[in-house]
Nucleic acid binder design. Sequence first.
DNA 1: TCTGGGGTCCTAGGACCC
DNA 2: TCTGGGGTCCTAGGACCC
Length: 425
Amino acid sequence: MARLALVDCNNFYVSCERTFNPSLEGKPVVVLSNNDGCAVARSNEAKALGIAMGEPMFKIRHLVDEAELVALSSNYALYGDMSARVMNVLATFAPSIEVYSIDESFLDLDGMPQADLTDWARQIRATVRQWTGIPVSVGIGPTKTLAKLANRLAKKSPKADGALDLTANPAWVETALKRTEVGDVWGIGRQYAGHCHVAGIHSAYDLALANDGWVKKAMGAVGLRTVMELRGIAVHTMEDEPADKQTTCCSRSFGDSVTGFDPLHDAVVTFAARASEKIRKQGLVAGALQVFAHTDRFRQDQPQHTLSSMARFQHPTSDARIIIGAAISGLERAWKDGFAWKKAGVLLLDLVRPEDIPRDLFSPAPAQNAKPKALMAAMDAVNAKMGRGAVGFGMVKPEAPWRMRQDSKTPSYTTSWDDIPVVRA
DNA sequence: TCTGGGGTCCTAGGACCC
DNA sequence: TCTGGGGTCCTAGGACCC
């Protein structure tokens, strides 16, 4: 039987903040999304207060006074760097590792000799904790979906204490399935859980026994794969090389809605420049671009509209000037007056490696590409060294009205020389 | 007053072709 | 009255994930 482990950081963003500010330990803490909009990470104490994932800040603000809730703006530079440290430690524990998200990795245990890997899992927990300060949980199962499920129980059950190996005893899989609500299964969201309940399927165990035809009809091919995995048949295999992205998006909600063409134009220019920077970093070029903007869907008293337009590039490109130009003309084409815009973004689509593009008669010669390429590389290098926005396209004002709100951001302890913590002798 | 951002995969339906 | 069927490609939108 194949075995793999899912290692997941507990309350990751909160744990990162606590590493550098131990006084947050034991307190209810949330980390907020952009614009300080919703809670996207919660400490156990915050969960105990009944704060849901994604809960809007304005609904829980009263807890700041009533329950000493601490709410922090998100600090992605810190979380990204801490994540890399955790993943480096994990890589020393298994022959191959698949980094699944900023706070989770799958570890391939093929060839690991032990029958019971619980001790090994505890060692991971202790090492990551000691070397990075981040608490993690470990779930082990025969498929990714069952490893996920094991991880959830490892976190929940005081007896498991953060580590659970479902492969150690064949009877445990069934017990675990029975103890898991169908909506808590990886791949079963709100919609699918609703369909399951109507059909009398309430636990992961019920779902594993469900009729294939019904599953296919209610939840499609994806749902069927989830069911296979619950039955112990591995469908999702380990992928040690992260695949190239097919799309990249840069979008933001605005701190305050904007009206009129100019502020939206400025925002779109910024997003286009950022998106092009992202794909250059990944060594990709885009075949098409989409620009969009929409009004505030929570303001039903105001007229609603979504504008969007697509453009295909003559030749795939990562040149910021071409991408910004296409974004502006896309916005001009789709523009409608008289709305208050709350969010906008630029998507780059059909991303490919330039070397994978078949060349034709009309492809630009390599020499023609050299200059823009050098210009972009120089710009990216300066921005990397001096900070984002050091060199740009001269159209973005730092006090732009659409800039995001971030009132309670902690320092970039690990990625900015100015913010490195000082230890007093 | 205040409600995130960045992805993937699949499916349904329209356009078009033979 | 009767007025095909099947394949492919593309797009929009839905569902899920973290």
